[in-house]
């Protein structure tokens, strides 16, 4: 188990390093960063000055190493737009996004796993059909439209929930549902397919031949095996939610990381963009690592050799 964990950790570090190179290089994608920062009236001398001040005149390797050296210490430089350390802004916004993501994934898993299990126990039943409908609608409907529809009904028509802001738990209900609903179909279908396959397996027949009660067969023998791929998917989706909540955060005016990313792009705030990409990627990598470790914990074929 320890060897496996160390191996996964090594891979994760390599991936993080690769991502940091990509995140850093992004700045140079649109062309000369000094040119992009300079106002239109700037002279050649002004641009040269900007280049010096921001250190763009050094070689890319030196700039990258310098940036990385500070980044691992939590220093992502100064925001070009806000005149504040990038790290402060990010860690100010991060908790909101994390909370939203956690609520959304919890909602998604609580809805999709039970539905997937029930659909697998009674394939082609009414519940299976309803679950399938939910999945198809969830997959087909754009999340911004779903969010706006909810706002219209629950926020404006019935006045049950606040439509913008982050002041209370009530403010998180609609954004979490809107964000989580998008993940539901995949997790539900994967749970259903996994359960169907496992329930038809020989070891489930063995469990029944032992006289075990259906609940025990289902939860001890079937779900444990069917849930393995779901763990990996849920981790990836959670990572995706943290980075991909731009639309939802914008609609509900939630001051999270997604919203900040979108703002920074429109402001050409390069250090901020680099930092956000790196932070979100590292979260993604950590989540994948945790999913791998959880899978190893659940599946002895990975853990014990």
């Amino acid at each position: 188990m320890l060897a496996y964990a160390l191996k996964r950790l090594g891979v994760a570090l390599l991936v993080a390093l690769t991502v940091s190179i990509i995140a850093f290089s992004m700045v140079y994608l649109p062309g000369d960063p000094a040119m992009a920062l300079a106002p239109e009236s700037a002279t050649e001398a002004d641009i040269e000055h900007i280049r010096k001040v921001y250190g763009f005149d050094r070689s890319m390797v030196v700039q990258y190493l310098d940036w990385l050296f500070h980044a691992v210490q939590g220093d992502f430089g100064q925001s070009h737009y806000l005149n504040e350390p990038v790290a402060n802004v990010i860690f100010d916004r991060l908790p909101t996004t994390m909370l939203l993501g956690a609520c959304a994934i919890t909602f998604a898993l609580l809805l999709s796993i039970p539905l997937g299990v029930i659909a697998a126990i009674r394939p082609n039943s009414l519940i299976d059909r309803i679950a399938l409908t939910i999945a198809v609608v969830g997959q087909a409907m754009p999340s911004f439209w779903f969010a706006l529809t909810m706002m219209l009904w629950f926020g404006i028509t019935w006045r049950l929930l606040p439509i913008t802001g982050t002041d209370s738990w009530k403010h998180f209900v609609m954004p979490a549902i809107a964000l989580g609903y998008y993940v539901t179909p995949g997790v539900m279908r994967l749970t259903r397919a996994g359960m169907l396959e496992v329930l038809a397996s020989d070891y489930i027949r063995t469990a029944r031949a032992k006289g075990l009660r259906p609940v025990r067969v289902l939860f001890k023998h079937a779900l444990r095996n069917a849930i393995l791929p779901v763990v990996s998917l849920a981790a990836v989706q959670f990572g995706f939610m943290l980075g991909g909540s731009v639309v939802i955060e914008t609609i509900f005016a939630i001051n999270g990381l997604g919203f900040l990313a979108w703002e920074s792009i429109t402001r050409a705030d390069l250090p901020m963009m680099q930092a956000i990409v790196l932070v979100l990627s590292v979260f993604y990598i950590v989540l994948t690592l945790l999913a791998d470790l959880l899978n190893a914990f659940l599946d002895p074929r990975i853990r014990v050799t």
Binding site: S201, D202, Y203, R205, T206, A207, R208, A209, K210, G211, L212, R213, K220, H221, R224, N225, L298, D299, P300, R301
Partner: peptide, 25 residues
């Protein structure tokens, strides 16, 4: 019936490779 299965009557299956649950000792 499930009270009898595994108690009064037990069954051995054809496929030993897949008849045991991989997740448990």
């Amino acid at each position: 019936m499930s009270d009898l299965r595994g108690d009064a009557m037990a069954m051995i299956f054809q496929e030993p490779m897949t008849s045991l649950n991989p997740a448990y000792t």
